[in-house]
Structure formats: structure tokens, C-alpha cells
Nucleic acid binder design. Structure first.
Length: 289
DNA sequence: GACACGTGGCG
DNA sequence: TCGCCAAGTGT
């Protein structure tokens, strides 16, 4: 059927994790930083880095003043380092065009680098308390089960997913409701090993009523990693994060034996602005020489 | 809509 | 061990 708002909010009050970006004193900037870091990245790895970032760059203009190299080094091994570059670009735009205040308007947010539909709505809801649907992979899974009675969500369908979630949004406490839906997907209604015995909306769950059928949609694509350009780029970047001085190419050559792939990946890192070459031909993180 | 894009932990 | 998974975005 639907999702029982009161039961879900009660469950949230009892069991929600005390994460720093959920505290009342957390700024919109703190929320934005958390949302970018959390893209495809587990909470446990984000939390310590988030604390470092907010202490070092408490407002967008502070980050805008840092170099790309500083930002990439501070990003550490969170993964997908282009996120760090885009967040720096977003911080620059916010400082320059928005008076150092994170915008609250979804469309304005979506216009900033690295901020798509999910992140824009998450900031609008969690930083500014707006009543808007927030659709991430957790929410899609919870809705697929509790509302549609399926074993899991099928491929994303932006407009339909948004409509589905908008239909569930309560008039009051919508932002908390959204956070609770995500939390439910993260802690209870998980992809595998669901904890249905702990579920606050067990009684209303269409998946339960259907006898918990297995997922029958198209097979999900699993991303490989070993041997991919992603792995090689990560290895190359790790060398540069680990040195304070620009290095000769020989130091990069040792991380991967396939010459062709190595060159291609180094080129793409230069292209992406994740690596720079000095006038003397050495390699470094950008903006540090 | 498919694919590229990092990294590490867990069952 | 290794496949699967984790609060997506940009092209």
C-alpha cells in the first residue's frame, strides 16, 4: 500500500544514526559536502574526512581559496576524485555568485558542478527543510518493495521514481520523512540480508504481502574493477598523493606494466585536471608547483 | 540509456 | 576467494 508516516518517523526518532551532518547546528555547506562525499561511498569512510574538511574549510569561500592539489590530497582515498574537483568548482561558484551561501533552490543547485537531481533535492530537504522528493538507491529499493511489492527496484526511471516518492510525501515533516526512508533502506530494507523483523512498516509492506518474491527485473550490471582504467588511474593518482614534490615519469611507470593502458590513463588524468605536468616534465597534483 | 568513473569491506 | 555493494553525476 503506502508508507505509514507516523510509524516511520517514530522509528527514526528511536534508531536513526547520530551523524554529524544531521545535527541541527550543521550548516548547509556541511550538508552539501556530506552529500557529495556520500555519492557511491559508505558512511564509515566519509565521516572522518568530512570532519577534516569542515574544520579546514568551514565555508565555501575557504575551499575556493585552496588549490586543486590541496583538495585532492584532503580527499584521500574516498574514490571518484573528480567529485573533489567539482565540489571545489561548486564552492567557487557559491562564493562568487551566491554570497558564500549554498543555494536552497533545487534548480539553482542542479546548475552547480557535481550536483545532480539527488544531491540538489537532498540539500533542499536536509539543509533547508523543504518538502521535496529525495530519490536515491535506498529510497528506490524501499518504494519498490513496500509500495510495489517487488523484490528490488528495476532500472532507474527519473520521472516515475520522482512521482512515486512525491506521492508518499507527508504534508508535515517531509524532510525528516525523506531522511527516514533513506535510513530505512540503509539499515533495514537493505539490498541483501534484509532485517524485516526490525522494520517499522512491516505490516503495510506490499513485498511481505506478496510473499517476498525474488527480484525479476533485468539483471543489474556489476562494475568490474581489476584491470580497468579506473584501477590504473587510482594507482597513478595514489603515487602523486603520496609525494610532496613533483615526480619523474619513471615513478608512475612502475605502478602498471601495460604501457599502452598506462599512457592512456595518465593522459586522461591530465585531461581531467587531476594531474599536471611541470615545465620540467615532472608530474604532480594540480596547482602545487 | 549505456557506460565511465575509485575504493575497500563484507558474506 | 571474489562477487556484490555503497546517500550519483556527466557524457
Amino acid at each position: 500500500m503506502s508508507v505509514d508516516t507516523e510509524l516511520l518517523l517514530d522509528w527514526w526518532d528511536r534508531t536513526a544514526r547520530d551523524l554529524p551532518w544531521r545535527r541541527p547546528d550543521c550548516t548547509a555547506w556541511g550538508v552539501l559536502v556530506s552529500e557529495i562525499m556520500l555519492q557511491q561511498t559508505p558512511v564509515a569512510r566519509v565521516e572522518p574526512i568530512w570532519h577534516e574538511w569542515l574544520a579546514r574549510w568551514p565555508v565555501p569561500s575557504a575551499m575556493a581559496a585552496a588549490s586543486h592539489g590541496d583538495v585532492l590530497r584532503a580527499w584521500g582515498k574516498l574514490g571518484y576524485p573528480r567529485r573533489a574537483l567539482r565540489l571545489h568548482e561548486a564552492a567557487t561558484a557559491i562564493a562568487r555568485d551566491h554570497g558564500d551561501v549554498v543555494p536552497s533552490d533545487i534548480e539553482t543547485l542542479e546548475g552547480l558542478p557535481g550536483i545532480g537531481s539527488y544531491t540538489a533535492r537532498a540539500v533542499a530537504a536536509f539543509a533547508y527543510g523543504q518538502r521535496c522528493a529525495v530519490v536515491d538507491t535506498n529510497v528506490r529499493r524501499v518504494v519498490a518493495r513496500a509500495v510495489h511489492g517487488a523484490g528490488d527496484a528495476g532500472p532507474p526511471s527519473t520521472k516515475r521514481d520522482l512521482r512515486d516518492v512525491e506521492a508518499l510525501l507527508p504534508q508535515d515533516d517531509a524532510a525528516t520523512f525523506s531522511a527516514a526512508l533513506m535510513e530505512l533502506g540503509a539499515l533495514v530494507c537493505t539490498a541483501k540480508s534484509q532485517r524485516c523483523a526490525d522494520c517499522p512498516i512491516y505490516e503495510a509492506c506490499a513485498w511481505q504481502r506478496n510473499g517476498r518474491p525474488a527480484y525479476d527485473g533485468p539483471a543489474k550490471k556489476v562494475q568490474g574493477f581489476a584491470g580497468t582504467d579506473r584501477q590504473v588511474r587510482g594507482l597513478l593518482l595514489d603515487v602523486l598523493r603520496g609525494t610532496s614534490e613533483p615526480v619523474a615519469k619513471a615513478h608512475l611507470d612502475v605502478v602498471w606494466s601495460n604501457h599502452t593502458q598506462r599512457e592512456k590513463c595518465l593522459d586522461s588524468l591530465l585531461q581531467d585536471g587531476l594531474v599536471e605536468q611541470t615545465a620540467s616534465g615532472l608530474f604532480a597534483l594540480p596547482g602545487e608547483h
